[in-house]
């Protein structure tokens, strides 16, 4: 019975993942390995960026709006924010589908999301990355790592640490069923600051982490150390988010640009 319950939980979380995220690793890999009929539009300089802005992300950048005359760094930062806001929305719906999450104290649900969403975003972003660049605009565009690096500081410093993390993370060769449980484990984390009902969340976390361990053993029988390696990634992601939060504050100041209210809520008093 216990084994059946664990398999059910793994399945429920995987189904919630497939249902709620518009992009997943299987889709991203199909595009990145050139197996789609139309390859993504490659953004590698100012000219290709402008073309992409007019077509792929016209709605996002508000082509007729206030950002049209702003510098490239500000426009790219704005696009990153839009993508983050969408993924936070998807993550919220995903979290609600994780058994037990919705019956937690509402303030604890908020705390879990506040601290978990960026770790989850960077873990899932790796699926859209290879060593040369990153899929954007639902896979219709591909922005090169070199172009992002060529931008003016501090915006140029924003993505490079995520690429470095992604290259190591992608070497673990997780699939979407593994990632679904990993993302659930990131969100249901008992040691976030300010949680009220820690015991309840720790029980949920233990359950999910145990299911993750069993799932990895079955899904990757040749990689016996995959589970401890993934636990280490949880710590790496926390560090990545701390650095990112500091960088965003710096960008906000130096570029004189605003943050989306949802992201403001998440970053405020975070670490």
């Amino acid at each position: 019975t216990q084994l059946a319950d664990q398999k059910t939980l793994a399945r429920q979380i995987y189904d919630a993942y497939l249902k709620n995220f518009s992009m997943n690793k299987a889709k991203a890999r199909t595009i990145l390995t050139g197996k789609t009929s139309t390859p993504p539009f490659v953004i590698h300089d100012m000219e290709t960026l402008q073309l992409a802005e007019q077509t792929l992300v016209a709605k996002m950048v508000g082509s007729a709006g206030a950002l049209k005359d702003r510098e490239v760094e500000v426009r790219i930062f704005h696009c990153c924010q839009c993508t983050s806001v969408e993924t936070v929305t998807e993550l919220t719906e995903f979290a609600k589908s994780v058994p037990g999450f919705s019956s937690l104290d509402l303030n604890d649900q908020v705390t879990l999301l506040k601290y978990g969403v960026y770790e989850a975003i960077f873990a899932m972003l790796a699926s859209c990355m290879n060593k040369d660049g990153l899929l954007v605009a639902y896979g219709s565009g591909f922005i090169t790592r070199e172009f992002l690096k060529s931008l003016r500081r501090p915006v140029s410093d924003m993505m490079e640490p995520k690429f470095q993390f992604a290259m190591k993370f992608n070497a673990l060769e997780l699939d979407d069923s593994d990632l679904a449980l990993f993302v659930a484990a990131i969100i249901c984390c008992g040691d976030r600051p300010g949680l009220v009902n820690v015991t309840h969340i720790e029980e949920m976390q233990e359950n999910i982490v145990h299911v993750l361990q069993l799932h990895l053993l079955a899904n990757h029988p040749d990689d016996t150390f995959l589970f401890p390696k993934l636990l280490q990634k949880l710590a790496d992601l926390r560090e990545l988010v701390t650095e990112h939060a500091q960088l965003v504050q710096e960008i906000k100041k130096t570029e004189d640009t605003s943050l989306h209210p949802l992201l403001q809520e998440i970053y405020r008093d975070m670490y």
């Binding site: 806001v85 936070v88 929305t89 919220t92 509402l106 649900q109 908020v110 999301l113 989306h260 949802l262």
Partner: peptide, 20 residues
Amino acid sequence: KEKHKILHQLLQNSTSPVDL
């Protein structure tokens, strides 16, 4: 609660933050 108004709203219904 006021500090995380949008997160509360997202958790309680499916309002898109873009529309808020």
